[in-house]
Deep mutational scan, measured.
Amino acid sequence: HAATELTPEQAAALKPYDRIVITGRFNAIGDAVSAVSRRADEEGAASFYVVDTSEFGNSGNWRVVADVYKA
Results as ranks from 00 to 15, higher is better:
1 H>V: 08
3 A>K: 03
3 A>C: 07
3 A>T: 06
3 A>Q: 03
3 A>S: 08
4 T>Q: 12
4 T>V: 14
4 T>Y: 14
5 E>D: 03
5 E>H: 10
6 L>I: 05
6 L>Y: 02
6 L>H: 02
7 T>E: 04
7 T>R: 07
7 T>V: 07
8 P>T: 13
8 P>C: 14
8 P>A: 15
8 P>I: 10
9 E>S: 10
9 E>V: 08
9 E>M: 11
10 Q>R: 07
11 A>L: 03
12 A>E: 08
12 A>N: 11
12 A>W: 07
13 A>Y: 12
13 A>V: 13
14 L>A: 07
14 L>N: 08
14 L>V: 06
15 K>H: 09
16 P>D: 01
16 P>N: 03
17 Y>W: 06
19 R>Y: 05
19 R>G: 00
20 I>A: 00
20 I>T: 00
21 V>H: 05
21 V>G: 00
22 I>T: 01
23 T>R: 07
23 T>N: 06
23 T>C: 14
24 G>A: 06
24 G>F: 10
26 F>E: 00
26 F>K: 01
26 F>H: 02
26 F>P: 00
27 N>W: 09
27 N>Y: 10
27 N>H: 12
27 N>E: 11
28 A>N: 15
29 I>C: 10
29 I>T: 05
30 G>P: 07
30 G>F: 10
30 G>E: 14
30 G>R: 12
30 G>I: 12
31 D>L: 07
31 D>C: 07
31 D>G: 05
31 D>V: 06
32 A>H: 01
32 A>M: 14
32 A>D: 02
33 V>Q: 05
33 V>S: 04
33 V>G: 02
34 S>A: 15
35 A>S: 05
35 A>L: 06
37 S>D: 02
37 S>L: 09
38 R>P: 00
38 R>A: 10
39 R>C: 10
39 R>G: 01
39 R>V: 10
40 A>Y: 03
40 A>L: 05
40 A>K: 01
40 A>V: 06
41 D>E: 14
41 D>Y: 15
41 D>R: 15
42 E>W: 09
42 E>Q: 12
42 E>D: 09
43 E>H: 14
43 E>A: 14
44 G>P: 03
45 A>N: 03
45 A>E: 01
45 A>W: 14
45 A>V: 03
45 A>R: 01
46 A>H: 15
46 A>C: 13
47 S>K: 05
47 S>D: 03
48 F>W: 04
48 F>T: 00
48 F>G: 00
49 Y>W: 07
50 V>K: 01
50 V>H: 01
50 V>N: 00
50 V>S: 00
50 V>G: 01
50 V>A: 00
51 V>R: 05
51 V>K: 02
51 V>C: 05
52 D>H: 13
52 D>P: 02
53 T>G: 06
54 S>M: 14
55 E>M: 11
55 E>I: 13
55 E>Y: 14
55 E>G: 06
55 E>S: 09
55 E>H: 10
56 F>L: 14
56 F>C: 11
56 F>D: 14
56 F>P: 07
56 F>Q: 11
56 F>A: 08
57 G>R: 06
57 G>C: 09
57 G>L: 07
57 G>A: 08
57 G>I: 06
58 N>A: 13
59 S>L: 10
59 S>P: 11
60 G>K: 06
62 W>S: 02
62 W>Q: 03
64 V>N: 01
65 V>E: 06
65 V>D: 01
65 V>Q: 02
66 A>K: 00
66 A>S: 02
66 A>V: 13
68 V>Y: 07
68 V>P: 02
68 V>E: 01
68 V>G: 00
69 Y>T: 00
69 Y>M: 00
69 Y>K: 03
69 Y>D: 00
70 K>T: 08
70 K>I: 09
70 K>P: 06
70 K>E: 08
71 A>M: 12
71 A>Q: 13
